[in-house]
Design a protein around this nucleic acid. Structure first.
Length: 494
RNA sequence: GGCGCUAUGGUGCAACGGUUAGCACGCGGCCCUUUCAAGGCUGAAAUACGGGUUCGAUUCCCGUUAGCGCUACCA
């Protein structure tokens, strides 16, 4: 039925909050699907609720998508700029009899209060305790012309509701949940156009998806129950319904819907925390989707290549922060160092450690340093955190490190001698440093490990750091000697 | 309340009538080792419950329970 050959999908967030992980995953699935099928992805901002919208949040959503590497081909389109189209569609449905004017007081319809618009009770027919199995039709649907005119002249606000058939079933195809059908009698006469002239989601989403020739609607499963209403609108508008694919929701650790109280839930906060976009993408893709086998580490190209809506699960998934972190370590480890450099550079700049650092002027050195540090990192912040000494001279000696490895009172003297021995080395490389240190340890009658650990604290300030001799070579003789002597001073003064 | 969806270890996924129910994260142990990671090996840990159907159910059907969603002039 669909006249569109070309596959078109859209991500349609509402600017009532930041881009949260659930929305991000919906966007990701749309993007993966579009790229896999060589289709088109559009971005549409659904801002028809003037009360709740926060226009300033739009940029944050766009930034979040960009951070994730999700690029859209068309848009962003704003529904707030297309209001005439929805109004016209509502009028058309009204004129054709598929919709009717409703004069009920908002909320009164569902709540069962007296309705000023009609003077009638709106709870519906089956309000005999628990007998109301069916959705009650709006009493206004059967008003005659004279009654409507009377209400109009009284200035009673009018909304436009869809005249839902009292019988029959509505069905649609869902690529995740299968063929679905619901009894029309279960569907209430829902509002299309509010009395203030603004469309509801049900109307605007359908009008836009038709106008934008959307072929596949991929969205959260929270929309599953309302889909029949939209299918009814498609039919009334004489348009073919798209194929739907509802994806399960992402829940917090307590299995409830993700919200602010679950801590970091906006993608921006993960960016700030030092997660890599590709790691986040990999993690997100496997929440509610599986390539069909046990693959876990899928880079973006493979994700696109293997993505299929058929692999989407129907079960809600819990967001597992620990696993996200594991993915991040994997992406910090496995790719070529060069891929990581831009991210580390940005991190160093953020921390004000870029200018003046050897990293800024010596690309090869920068790559070596990052490669040495990264096996022990979990987040980008580690590069300016525990690994700060690689990029700055002002670093502190971690308290636990001092207590653990500088406890022996001979350390000061040995570090002093070590500095001398290293200074005398004809060549400052891994093996020479190794030999010099072990030789000294032997002469002093201590285990090499003791001196190695003490030296590590001296030159990087931490108990946990990369292998010592590699670190010394990357730092270079001058800095190592300076730090050794600085440590001796710190030890003897304390 | 009504309607609907879902149900494999703590978590994310495999097994799409026949497997000793697999993989990964996390957790424990061992190896490696210069701290800590990474890596390798390894251990504990699951088919919600009850009925069917079938030679045979994780898998198909029904019920129960639980969770979630929708039930707005929110999206």
């Amino acid at each position: 039925m669909a006249t569109t050959q070309h596959l078109r999908v859209r991500f349609a967030p509402s600017p009532t909050g930041y881009l949260h992980v659930g929305g991000a995953r919906t966007a990701l699935f749309n993007w993966l699907f579009a790229r896999h099928e060589k289709g088109t992805l559009l971005l549409r901002i659904e801002d028809t609720d003037v009360e709740r919208n926060r226009p300033e949040l739009v940029q944050g959503i766009l930034d979040g998508l960009k951070w994730l590497g999700i690029e859209w081909d068309e848009g962003p389109f704003f529904q707030s700029q297309r209001l005439e189209m929805y109004r016209a569609a509502a009028e058309r449905l009204l004129a054709g009899g598929a919709a009717f004017g409703c004069y009920c007081k908002p909320a009164a319809y569902a709540g069962g209060d007296a309705a000023p618009g009609t003077g009638e009770e709106h709870a519906g027919e089956g309000d005999d305790e628990g007998k109301a199995l069916k959705a009650a039709p709006c009493p206004c649907r059967d008003l005659n012309d004279a009654e409507r005119a009377a209400r109009h002249s009284q200035g009673i606000p009018r909304a436009i509701r869809f005249r839902v058939p009292r019988t029959g079933v509505t069905h649609f195809e869902d690529l995740v949940f299968g063929a679905r059908e619901v009894q029309n009698a279960e569907i209430e006469d829902f509002v299309l156009l509010r009395s203030n002239g603004l469309p509801t989601y049900q109307l605007s989403v359908v009008v836009d998806d038709i106008d934008m020739r959307i072929s596949h609607v991929i969205r959260g499963a929270d929309h599953l129950s309302n889909t029949p209403k939209q299918v009814l609108i498609y039919q009334a508008l004489g348009a073919a319904a798209p194929v739907f694919a509802h994806v399960p929701l992402i829940l917090g650790a307590d299995r409830t819907r993700l919200s602010k109280r679950h801590g970091a839930t906006s993608v921006g906060s993960y960016a700030d925390e030092g997660f890599l976009p590709e790691a986040f993408r990999n993690f997100l893709a496997l929440l509610g989707w599986s390539p069909g086998d046990d693959s876990e580490f899928l880079r973006t190209g493979e994700l696109i290549e293997r993505f299929s809506l058929g692999g989407v699960s129907r079960t809600n998934a819990v967001f597992d922060r620990a696993k996200l972190e594991w993915y991040n370590t994997q992406y910090l480890q496995k790719p070529a160092v060069e891929e990581l450099l831009p991210y580390v550079e940005a991190e160093l700049k953020r921390a004000g450690l870029w200018e003046g650092s050897q990293a800024s002027g010596d690309r090869a050195w920068f790559a070596r340093a990052v490669d040495l540090i990264r096996p022990r990192t979990r987040l980008l912040g580690d590069f300016t955190g525990w690994a700060r000494a690689f990029f700055a001279e002002d670093f502190d000696y971690e308290a636990e490190a001092r207590e653990k490895f500088w406890k022996d009172e001979r350390v000061g003297g040995m570090l002093h001698k070590l500095a001398g021995a290293l200074e005398a080395l004809p060549e400052f490389n891994h093996d020479a440093c190794d030999a010099a240190l072990r030789g000294l340890a032997g002469a002093e009658g201590v285990k090499a490990g003791l001196l190695i650990n003490a030296t590590r604290v001296a030159i990087v300030g931490r108990a946990v750091a990369p292998p010592l001799f590699d670190t010394m070579v990357v730092l270079g003789r001058d800095r190592v000697l300076a730090r050794l002597r600085r440590a001796v001073a710190a030890l003897t003064s304390a």
